[in-house]
Computed example of a mutant assay.
Amino acid sequence: MQILLNQNNEIIAYAVSGGIEREGYKTLTIEDNQVPDSFRESFKPRYFLYKDEEVKLNANYEEEKTELPQVPPVEFPTSDEALRHMFSSMQVQIVQGNKMVTQLTQQNANLSQQIVQLTQEVENLKGGNDDETTIS
């Protein structure tokens, strides 16, 4: 087994097979009989020390306190009037969105019509005329 030690000889990680290395930490290979029976089940970084060629519980171990990010309070409208205002504002946005969709649909139709006209003009020009101004 390999163990990874910090500067205080606290075991921060271990590997049963393969190797384990990290810059700034010391890696040691030890025998399985050097660790307590409960080592694998109760392992936590810095919970065990490597001292006098033996793995022992760390008497100075303290749980890491992880602070969760604070979620800012969200204020929801509580009055009936505020809800009505929000609803009417959303209705205005929907109407504006529908107007934009209608305008884009019209523009799309106009562009399609122009493509058809241009295609017809190209076909007419390809057909040729008596002036020998045929495009090929």
Rank of each mutant, 00 (worst) to 15 (best):
133 T>G: 09
67 E>K: 10
37 D>H: 08
88 S>H: 14
54 E>P: 01
29 T>H: 07
120 Q>Y: 02
87 F>P: 01
75 E>F: 14
63 E>R: 11
59 A>Q: 08
122 V>S: 00
24 G>H: 00
58 N>P: 09
96 Q>T: 11
99 K>F: 03
48 F>I: 04
53 E>A: 15
93 Q>D: 13
81 E>D: 05
70 Q>D: 08
123 E>A: 08
122 V>P: 01
107 Q>D: 14
53 E>H: 11
87 F>R: 04
30 I>C: 00
134 T>W: 09
1 M>A: 13
15 A>P: 02
114 Q>P: 01
76 F>H: 12
90 M>D: 11
24 G>I: 02
85 H>D: 06
92 V>A: 02
5 L>R: 05
108 N>H: 07
114 Q>R: 05
49 L>V: 06
106 Q>K: 09
131 D>C: 03
130 D>P: 01
44 K>Y: 11
39 F>A: 07
98 N>Q: 08
42 S>Q: 08
7 Q>E: 11
117 Q>S: 06
35 V>M: 15
33 N>Y: 08
127 G>T: 07
9 N>P: 01
84 R>K: 09
94 I>Q: 11
9 N>L: 03
48 F>T: 06
12 I>G: 07
112 S>W: 00
23 E>P: 01
40 R>M: 08
55 V>M: 02
55 V>A: 06
65 K>S: 07
56 K>P: 01
136 S>V: 12
79 S>T: 15
4 L>C: 05
94 I>F: 02
131 D>G: 04
126 K>P: 00
60 N>M: 01
113 Q>E: 00
101 V>C: 03
121 E>P: 01
94 I>G: 03
106 Q>F: 05
119 T>E: 12
90 M>E: 14
57 L>D: 04
65 K>F: 06
130 D>W: 10
26 K>C: 05
125 L>N: 14
22 R>M: 12
74 V>A: 08
126 K>H: 12
86 M>Q: 14
9 N>S: 11
112 S>A: 07
33 N>R: 07
111 L>D: 05
130 D>H: 14
42 S>I: 01
102 T>R: 05
14 Y>E: 09
2 Q>N: 12
11 I>N: 08
52 D>I: 01
106 Q>A: 09
91 Q>R: 14
57 L>Q: 07
91 Q>K: 15
68 L>A: 10
41 E>S: 13
81 E>A: 14
61 Y>S: 11
118 L>N: 00
48 F>M: 03
25 Y>Q: 04
45 P>S: 14
5 L>N: 05
